[in-house]
Design a protein around this nucleic acid. Structure first.
Lengths: 205, 205
DNA sequence: CGCTCTTGTTAGTAATCACTCAATGCCAAC
DNA sequence: GTTGGCATTGAGTGATTACTAACAAGAGCG
């Protein structure tokens, strides 16, 4: 499955990266962050199955250099993944408590939807959970999302559960490309319409 | 990540399969189904990244034979995946309409929880959705689950959405091994307790 | 027994993988 | 202006990959 798809995907990524990449010399930490950004994009697309070569081409660097900077492909993935989950948690944690905090939490998550790569990467970590460190980060992110919602909104456990569940539904719909295949199945169309209206509702609040 | 883990995992699978495998000659379709069952287990563990060799060892067959019978690793994955999604849909479709149909739909899904491999495989398909055929099967399954719930229970679109969302939450919690890591994060513990009580509630109904 | 079809294997191939090694240029400090 | 450290690469290695080709063996049938 990943042969044709990831080939052309990485070609696209390499093209668009080589345009924006300064081929000249960079400082170590700066290059590290650039590679991490590329890794986030590539891993979001193909998950852990993406190769370090794809990441290197997306960053405009040679492949040995990315493993030199990060030690191991697994280390790179774990670092990119923990960054992503931390970003999600930070966004939710930035919502202050108070009246209508539940709606503002929902709006904060909807804001995250703009960055498709972020949520796709988080999703990939959910199924790559047999790696102990990835699994721990994934569980921590889910638990924090629940805890923050209940704490900030003062809602019941059931409301917290529903908040996280709704987030997972949106994640999955995004991952399977539901928005890009409207008109394929009537059930999916109706589900998508219902979720979309909820998103618009929370966005307006 | 998958190196050490999948190695020992496939060794376990091969051992337990070689015990239950009739090494003698089998009929073609029977062997096909046996390999499909093995593929379901292996793909549930490691996703599409699992090798045909792992599947072959789990089935107690040589590796070239599994690609001979199924043509391509991708074909094998797609067939195993469509079988899994069809099983989920069939289970939900078996719930008759009537009063308390919503609770019975929930109970039917909880029944599916007993087969961890099934839901883990379905989850893997959700993130492998860049493959067109896998993505289509995943979207069809989600759409059908929603449609069936609304049709059988006569509920509102919002209730249907919440049903599917709850299913996704349970899937994710299962995939990240939340039940196997209790006591790690207080937020996750509270979330898991809330979901568990909901499951027990629907199980009793 | 012989003939043939299906079941199954061993041996092999080309590609890709993560990762290593040794080297090369660049920049700043002395 | 030479020295030394940092950024970066090309070339290579061994392992694993999906997949192929050719061949062995068993079962039904005349």
């Amino acid at each position: 499955m990943s042969q044709q798809m990831s080939q052309q995907a990485s070609q696209q990524a390499s093209q668009q990266a080589s345009q924006q990449t300064t081929t000249s010399r960079m400082s170590g930490p700066a290059r590290r962050e650039q590679i991490l950004a590329a890794a986030r994009k590539v891993f979001a697309e193909d998950g852990y199955a993406a190769s370090t070569d794809q990441v290197a081409r997306a960053a405009g660097v040679s492949q040995p250099y990315v493993v030199r900077l990060f030690g191991t492909k697994r280390d790179l993935f774990v670092e990119a993944y923990t960054h992503a989950t931390a970003e999600v948690c930070a966004t939710l944690a930035a919502v202050p408590a108070g009246p209508d905090a539940d709606a503002r939490m929902g709006a904060a998550y909807v804001e995250l939807l703009a960055d498709r790569d972020l949520l796709r990467l988080v999703m990939h970590g959910f199924v790559a959970g047999n790696d102990p460190e990835v699994g721990r980060a994934a569980r921590a992110c889910l638990g924090e999302a629940y805890r923050l919602f209940v704490e900030r909104s003062g809602g019941t456990p059931e409301q917290g559960r529903d908040f996280v569940a709704m987030g997972m539904l949106v994640n999955v719909l995004l991952a399977v490309g539901a928005d890009a295949h409207v008109g394929e199945s009537e059930g999916m169309d109706a589900l998508l319409a219902c979720v979309d209206s909820s998103i618009e509702e929370v966005r307006g609040a």
